[in-house]
Design a protein around this nucleic acid. Sequence first.
DNA 1: GCATTCCTGATTTACGTACCTCAGGAATTG
DNA 2: CAATTCCTGAGGTACGTAAATCAGGAATGC
Lengths: 340, 340
Amino acid sequence: MRPTVHDIAAEAGVSLATVDRVLNGRPGVRRQTVERVEKAVHRLGYIRDLTAANLARRRIYPLVFIIPSGPNSFMRVLEAEIASAMQRSPIDRTSIRIETVPPFDPDAIVRVLDAIDPKTVTGVALVATDTEEIRAAVDRLIDQGVQVATLVSDLPGSRRVHYCGIDNIAAGRTAGNLIGRFCAGRSGKVLVVAGSLKLSDHMDRASGFAAVLEAEFPDLAIVGPVETNDDADTVGQAVGAALDADPAIVAIYNLGAGNRGLIEGIAARPARRLSVVAHEVTEHSRRALADGVFDAIINQDCGHEVRSAIRVLKAHADGLDPLSDQERIRIDIFLKDNLP
Amino acid sequence: MRPTVHDIAAEAGVSLATVDRVLNGRPGVRRQTVERVEKAVHRLGYIRDLTAANLARRRIYPLVFIIPSGPNSFMRVLEAEIASAMQRSPIDRTSIRIETVPPFDPDAIVRVLDAIDPKTVTGVALVATDTEEIRAAVDRLIDQGVQVATLVSDLPGSRRVHYCGIDNIAAGRTAGNLIGRFCAGRSGKVLVVAGSLKLSDHMDRASGFAAVLEAEFPDLAIVGPVETNDDADTVGQAVGAALDADPAIVAIYNLGAGNRGLIEGIAARPARRLSVVAHEVTEHSRRALADGVFDAIINQDCGHEVRSAIRVLKAHADGLDPLSDQERIRIDIFLKDNLP
DNA sequence: GCATTCCTGATTTACGTACCTCAGGAATTG
DNA sequence: CAATTCCTGAGGTACGTAAATCAGGAATGC
């Protein structure tokens, strides 16, 4: 049988109340007594029963998700995943609130972060643009004892406890490798389309992609990156213009959003034979893959990201460390055959 | 506040004991009263607090994993993942036992299955070969109220509650698609290496692969499948012999184990330019991918499979249904750039 | 020497559920 | 009509932990 606080009390020769004080770091225990209890804990291999503890203290974990508003499909899928996690709140003792903020607006994020009450919120997960003010606001929250995790795009240099997302440099490299191989032998140009190079994830993908092409596929030259602010129509126009202007383009890598526009741009020029790699499985990209318009999609499982964020924030709030294997978000490659 | 049994009792105008009898399906309650209670449950949206319930009944979930013994790297990794899950047993209230059985020996599996005591075991996860006797033994266990899930390889036609693994036809198709694209333009032959075509997963991969090549890459002809019983040395010899005998081979798909042998066979013939796709990330295959010997690895995340099996068995034991999204095992494609 | 503070023990209640016992009324059986 | 069975209520204890209260002893300060 697993040892309980009663066993610890007996083993250490102290009362239950003292064990409780030590275990929960409350004051009022002499240093020697603390050590006696800690030794007993160690000797018996005591592990606190978190479920019983949470029951006794009627604990719930109030969490806040901060994500961009706007039409970006990926973000809306993310929001749906959060909503679906909210339905399980009674089971996993969470209380989740979603805050949407205008995209590309650091100040709005800072305002939401600063409005968070550390007394009533245990954890925050946010999709952040990489700016100094946000970094500072995150660190302020951390100082107040709130657990903060970044979602989808990281905030390097901040003290966030965890990043729930993929390594975007590696994602860019993966795209480069795919396009390089799919173009096997053909030489020509690759059009790179991005949302905004001010987003660290987009920047990372672009540089990873460029590095692989340069090192391993010298016959392919990069055109771009073209910036589109993740707007589908802008993507469509940019792609159309580039294709018309440059017949040497044999491949397209869209590392940002706006796949609908990309698909339309390609569909309008059926004579071109192109290798196309894009990001994120959404309604549009899924169909494009099935139809052979896209050759591969690089994906991050945002359901996994949301569930992982919740687990990680809870674990940190309890002073545990999460399972790194389980929380690592993979860079999924989907061809039409392994689409889930 | 979430409603409790007390609220249900008050709402239904019955005593706590009666609510308890209804909720736990115990006898001694008139049909009308049962309905009154059930209506109250529904009206208040009562959800039983599983953690409190498990605490009260001191519940643990005794689980058994049945996996093949022998040197197969993938199975050893699987075993390590189970061992790692065992370390978390106190936290997730499981008690896990591993039973290893000689590979390719259906009778041994049946013996282990039949030796399971339904009174002391709530769930079983097994890596099964697809035979009639095993199917029957699984169904016997199900009839005794034991939850059974298949792991890695499914048992279609049995009444197992869940399959924790990938769609192997789709995996084979994915391999076909990759090899077809990697060989872009080159025509020639593809050597297919399998462990045993009596394993349904191997059979499925082979047929998925063949279907895609035939439909989409008619310039590539299949040689094989060669059967190797998943033995690395046999794989090495078979690959060497095939390459020496047939200079038209431009690609290899190893859909089974024994990657070490495959790597050796290829390394001994450095002049050949080959596209190679294999399964499962292990120590050997990881290095081969990094070194450019393999072009891609198709993988199933066996840590995920094990954790998923545990979650699913527990959920079914509690009469809940698991999150299908979370429990779906993806067909991972790894290039050297997105290797975790 | 007395009050104050600090440390500790003892005891109790609570969390939400399971499960047990006991008692009594209603309904059924003979 | 008595005996039996079925249904229900009341009440309690337990699970492992948190947290509160009260009390008493030791150490400290003045």
